[in-house]
Design a protein around this nucleic acid. Structure first.
Lengths: 175, 175
DNA sequence: CATAAATAGTATGAGCTCGGATTATCCGAG
DNA sequence: CTCGGATAATCCGAGCTCATACTATTTATG
């Protein structure tokens, strides 16, 4: 009823029991150097999310926690709205995030003395210690990710990404 | 009282009141060429998501719809699990996504004749028409995003991203 | 000063993601 | 052939994101 080639097809498309041969169909569909740029960027971001997020996880935090703490380490006197815009994060999402970080005593919110509507989140001593530990591992993970590139190539990669981003202010949390 | 002339102005310029200067602190925090790689990748992916997603939106679909349809256009005979792995998409999420696309008659699920547990999703004629239209706009948007790079630089960018991705199989839907 | 419009932050609710349980089916050992 | 374990898809529930509504406060205008 069926051709004998079915065996090879089945082997190729089979799950991954023990021997784990490479499935040609999957590889053909997965990301490759000719894939669309949107897809490559998404996958690469996903990859870095996994490795850097694992580093944050080792200290009981998430990648988003680390990013927010790093932002608060670099700048001060931002309101929540300004922080959210700089991070491309929805204000409601950021409020919930700051609630979590505040409950863990990693940040604190003070009222802006010049505008009593606004709150100025600030990183605490404890928060900065956690941030510093994670930053070490995160930088190592980033260096490892581009170890195949030399300094000039790495710099070009960054500038190319920066060029794609431009001055856009896109929303959307994948982080 | 009511200011008859300014009213329309204000409504039109909502969110950016007249005379508001640019906040220097915000600009300083945003992504720059020296930002961390993880952050740049995330922002660049976010940017492409916005522009390509807008293209899909013009045809009543989402970026994820387009990606799934493109995958089904490129390959055949994948089960849902295999498709999900290739796309880095959770099996539950993919089931829901295929439900939506199926309801719109853009894909159909047939039982794998060799394994009655498995379903083989396939793109329909109608689905491929939508896919083709979106693909045109998407390619144009991608070219526009890297218009500052020449062919060699663009190729290098892709290969660098491909190198970062490696053979990892990360989960996580930002798409 | 009085008052209307705009804005920062928070609360609420719809819809989504994803880990784990469930069902139907396949496969290998006896 | 039968039976126990593995696997594909689906179902269910906790937790999350984000649009919208709401409150407190500031700013503009006469």
């Amino acid at each position: 009823m069926t051709t004998e080639t079915k065996d090879t097809e089945r082997v190729a498309a089979a799950g991954k029991p023990a021997g784990t041969p490479i499935e040609p169909s999957r590889v053909a569909l997965g990301p490759g150097p000719d894939s669309e740029l949107t897809w490559l960027l998404h996958r690469a971001a996903q990859r870095m999310h996994a490795v850097v997020g694992a580093e944050a996880e080792r200290h009981g935090l998430t990648l988003r926690d680390h990013i927010v703490l790093s932002a608060l380490h670099k700048t001060t006197d931002l309101t929540q709205i300004e922080l959210g815009q700089a991070l491309g994060m929805d204000k409601t999402t950021l409020t919930a995030e700051l609630d979590r970080l505040g409950k863990a005593s990693l940040v604190e919110r003070r009222v802006d003395p010049r505008d009593r509507r606004a709150r100025i989140p600030a990183i605490t001593e404890k928060g900065d210690e956690a941030r510093a530990k994670i930053a070490d591992g995160a930088h190592a993970a980033e260096r490892a990710a581009v170890r195949a590139l030399d300094a000039a190539q790495s710099a070009f990669l960054r500038s190319a990404l920066y060029g794609i981003i431009g001055d856009a202010d896109d929303p959307g949390s994948c982080i």
